[in-house]
């Protein structure tokens, strides 16, 4: 799954400098935010989905599953904007509202694609370092890193406990399945909380003191690494100017 790939951090750009990786994200993010063109937003979606596919080697099926969660919510919101319901029950699509809904949908979709890409190419420690740089309160950074750890534990614990349940003939009938899911959630949270407590002890033993300072290997910045992202950014800028004005 994508979340595992994020945690594994074994994508094609992992050896690149922070700024070179940032060049893939920042221009596209700003241009998408400013764009009023459905065509430009769609172009961003296409390019970034292809990029995520190429960088992470994630399968198309997983990518669809990944995008389906946020897109479901966005679609519902956009349909609400486009639809006009009158009494007695009559559903109408108002052209102006529909156009706005499609614009919102494509823009949100494009922003999600860019954000997923950012999530993919930055490690949690790099994101925490950026937070520190922009003076985000340390409590939030701590929560952010702890959530990362908690998710990790939750993920592996859920897998193990689910398998353990299945080995003991769990989930054999629909009626049982609900009960077993409930049991799974209860035990997963209990064990994840316990494991996190141990992790906190382990961090204290290494002078952690609730501060999450990691050091990455030093990577020298070279302009050559920025060739592709800058080419992409200039291409996007060109399309932005053509399609928005």
């Amino acid at each position: 799954m994508f979340i595992e790939q994020i945690y594994n951090h074994n994508h094609r750009l992992h050896q690149q400098h922070l700024l070179a990786r940032g060049a893939y994200i920042l221009p596209a993010f700003i241009l998408t935010l400013c764009s009023h063109s459905i065509a430009f937003n769609s172009l961003i979606v296409t390019i970034y989905i292809l990029l995520i596919r190429y960088i992470s080697n994630i399968s198309g099926k997983h990518l669809v599953r990944l995008f389906s969660i946020p897109l479901t919510f966005i679609s519902l919101g956009c349909i609400t904007i486009a639809m006009h319901v009158t009494f007695p029950l009559k559903v109408q699509f108002i052209p102006a509202n529909t156009e706005l809904a499609i614009l919102i949908f494509t823009k949100s979709f494009a922003l999600i694609a860019v954000l997923f890409m950012a999530l993919m190419i930055y490690t949690i420690s790099e994101i925490a370092a950026v937070f520190r740089l922009i003076k985000v309160p340390s409590l939030f950074i701590e929560l952010f890193v702890l959530m990362y750890r908690f998710n990790m534990k939750l993920l592996s614990n859920t897998k193990q406990l689910y398998l353990a349940q299945k080995c003991r003939l769990g989930y054999t009938s629909n009626k049982q399945a609900y009960r077993h899911i409930g049991l799974l959630f209860a035990s997963v949270f209990q064990s994840a909380i316990k494991a996190n407590k141990t992790t906190e002890i382990a961090m204290t033993a290494r002078l952690g003191n609730h501060q999450y300072h990691f050091v990455s290997p030093h990577r020298t910045f070279c302009w050559k690494a920025c060739t592709y992202p800058l080419f992409l950014a200039s291409l996007l800028l060109m399309f932005y100017l053509i399609l928005n004005f």
Binding site: H9, V145, K153, T199, A205, L207, H213, F214, V215
Partner: peptide, 27 residues
């Protein structure tokens, strides 16, 4: 120094390099 029985309880960083740097940076 304390080595925990379950390594997963001790590992917190996204990469091995950062994991080793954690205690050192705090120190």
């Amino acid at each position: 120094g304390f080595l925990f029985p379950n390594s997963d309880d001790q590992l917190i960083a996204p990469t091995v390099y950062e994991e080793i740097s954690f205690g050192l940076m705090n120190l």
